[in-house]
């Protein structure tokens, strides 16, 4: 029995047009060989290009995908992915891990706008920065991320977690304006610098900030943070999840708790640690 090698897509040359990477799921679901995959016609592209015109395909492990020499023109990597891993060496374009249902998408570079939108499970790890609308609702959609985890080691753009309904987002860097706006539920950790007006119009959900954010006094009410049993459970969960979470952040109770957005429903909460 031959040993399994990751199914690897190596980009051949610079692209001056976006490439829809949703074909990955079809290749995996049909367990297509590397040679056959190179012959697949990419209907989304002009000039009747085939996958082999853009990528050199090798390997045979359909649960372990590697995209080498990736750049921001490759859009929709990991869309609808259900199991296994996708490792992206380089940057990824917009809509990365859109509607992800399981498995893991690991991007060693940055991702474009609307990545992680509609996620229903799985994990998206971004080693560098993310664009706008990470884990947010797509224009016209009522809910954003619905399950799963997103971990960003760099910064993110605007509208992070907009209309997010469930799941966990961790951002180690800074976030743009409108983070967690209209949040429905879920948990977001903002471990970088000061966030600007996070949680505007949030109905429910939890935001945890390492730096005290700028908040509208009309929208959030500050409370004492006494006897918070849930905090201990959450910290215990995070310890098992990420080694990078600085244990000292969770060694004591949160300093402050704000509830809001009082203009909407008021059941959201912002912890300051």
């Amino acid at each position: 029995m031959s040993s399994l090698k990751p199914l690897t897509f190596t980009r051949k040359e610079d692209l001056d047009f976006p490439v829809d990477m949703r074909f990955l799921r079809n290749i995996v679901d049909s367990r297509m060989s590397a040679k056959k995959a190179e012959q697949v016609l990419m209907s989304s592209l002009p000039d009747a290009l085939r996958i082999g015109d853009i990528f050199k395909v090798s390997g045979n492990d359909h649960q372990n995908i590697v995209i080498e020499n990736s750049n921001a023109k490759l859009e929709g990597i990991g869309t609808g992915w259900r199991r296994g891993t996708i490792k992206v060496i380089g940057n990824a374009g917009s809509f990365t891990a859109q509607s992800l249902r399981g498995g893991c998408v690991h991007v060693e570079g940055s991702v474009g706008d609307f990545s992680g939108c509609g996620m229903n499970g799985g994990q998206l790890v971004i080693e560098a920065d993310a664009g706008n609308g990470l884990g947010a609702s797509l224009p016209g959609e009522k809910i954003g991320m619905n399950e799963g985890r997103i971990i960003v080691n760099g910064n993110t753009g605007t509208r992070l977690g907009n209309r997010m309904r469930r799941g966990l987002i961790v951002v180690y860097g800074d976030v743009g304006v409108g983070a967690c706006s209209s949040m429905i539920s879920g948990t977001v950790l903002l471990l970088g610098g000061q966030a600007n007006l996070p949680g505007t119009h949030m109905r429910r959900g939890t935001i945890i900030c390492a730096s005290e954010p700028s908040l509208s006094a009309d929208s959030f009410f500050e409370q004492e943070c006494e006897n918070n049993t849930y905090w201990n459970i959450f910290c215990s969960y995070m310890e098992g999840l990420s080694e990078r979470i600085n244990q000292s952040l969770f060694s004591c109770s949160p300093r402050k708790r704000f509830v809001g957005d009082l203009n909407i429903y008021g059941m959201g909460e912002i912890f300051i640690i």
Binding site: T187, N227, Y230, I233, M267
Partner: peptide, 21 residues
């Protein structure tokens, strides 16, 4: 408040000494 951590869901019920988890 419902919070789902991994596969486990917790309820945080407001009571007079804080929350019953």
């Amino acid at each position: 408040i419902s919070k789902k951590l991994g596969n486990r869901r917790y309820w945080r019920i407001p009571v007079m000494d804080g929350e019953f988890v």
